[in-house]
Computed example of a mutant assay.
Amino acid sequence: MTTLEIWHARKQLHITFWPALPLSFFHACFYLARPFFDNGLPYAEMAGGHSSGFFAILIFEAILYAICLSFIILAMVYERGQLGYKQDSLCDPLTGVGNRRAFLEYGNELIRKRKNQAFPLQLILFDLDNFKRLNDQYGHAGGDSALVFFCNVVNSTLEKKDIFARIGGEEFACLTMKPKEQAILMAETIRFQLAQNSQHNIPMTVSVGMAFSKPDQDSISHLLIQADHALYRAKSAGKNRIELS
């Protein structure tokens, strides 16, 4: 039963669990084999008060199983703790989305996969408009609530495979494998939804710069530079708009 439970939960376990599988299975096999050697009787009920040699082996195996299982559990707990620290280092503590480090790490990994698999890759750069004004008037609490609100709007629009992160201040980036037209539509949906809301009676809008990956591009940094240039044009043209690189 332990083996089956671990096997069924393998997709939820983000740690190395495989040593526990053969160990629990091997332990179960000993007890399944016991009726063939000593009929599964307690020690005192064995003929002449003596147990079979298998019973001694069974006791030794049970002790060895407990010791090994303890070490495996400790290793799993340690690995889970390390995984937690890593996830914290890749997460923005305010908004709960990825940070710049996570975006670059996962983005470059996606670029490498793209070399072997042909799929579109678009980068969307967001910058909240008039954020300094909101921060000056309502303090950091007002600015923080605006950032969290924006992330909620974006997360309600993105798909699970899209990579979204806060890369600095009020600037956010998204990597999506949607085709160009669908990526533009997604960015426009986010821009429109945000424009329908406000924080502390200050209208919330966002300027957007988009860059589209080409087969010869092998760096997420290059896409960021292109999207940043497009974002600068969106800001210069009056904000609350989308510009393409």
Rank of each mutant, 00 (worst) to 15 (best):
M1E: 11
L13S: 09
A227W: 00
E170C: 03
A28P: 04
A211S: 14
L244T: 13
V154T: 08
K11Y: 12
M76S: 04
L231R: 03
C68E: 10
G209S: 07
P22H: 05
I242G: 05
D144W: 01
I59S: 10
A102S: 14
L194S: 04
G142Q: 02
D218K: 11
K11T: 13
G96E: 02
E61C: 13
P35R: 03
L158G: 00
V148F: 06
E243K: 08
R191G: 03
T157V: 15
F126E: 00
G142P: 00
G168I: 07
A173D: 01
A237R: 13
D218A: 12
Q82R: 14
P215Y: 08
A102L: 10
M186A: 11
L90Y: 08
I111C: 07
K160P: 08
A9E: 14
L69K: 06
L58P: 03
T95Q: 01
D162S: 04
S145D: 13
F60I: 14
R166I: 08
C68V: 15
L32C: 11
H200R: 12
H14Y: 12
H140E: 06
A165R: 00
L13Q: 10
L175P: 01
I220G: 09
G53F: 01
A141C: 12
I67Q: 08
L123I: 06
C151G: 05
P215I: 12
V148N: 02
L4E: 08
Q82N: 12
S52Q: 07
Q117H: 13
A227G: 10
A187Y: 00
A33F: 11
A195Q: 13
M46T: 12
A47E: 11
Q196N: 11
W18H: 10
P215N: 15
E181C: 07
I111Y: 03
N155S: 15
R112M: 12
R166G: 00
V208A: 03
I190N: 00
G107S: 07
R114W: 06
E159Q: 15
L41D: 09
F192W: 13
T3R: 05
V77Y: 08
I225Y: 12
E243C: 13
Y85I: 15
S219F: 07
M46L: 10
E171R: 05
I163Y: 01
A187K: 02
A20I: 15
G49H: 08
I124S: 02
L41S: 09
G48T: 06
I57T: 14
I167C: 09
H222M: 12
E105V: 09
L231Y: 02
A62Y: 09
K115P: 02
R112G: 06
R166S: 03
N135I: 08
F25D: 05
I67H: 08
M46N: 14
R114Q: 12
P203C: 09
S221V: 13
R100Y: 03
G142E: 00
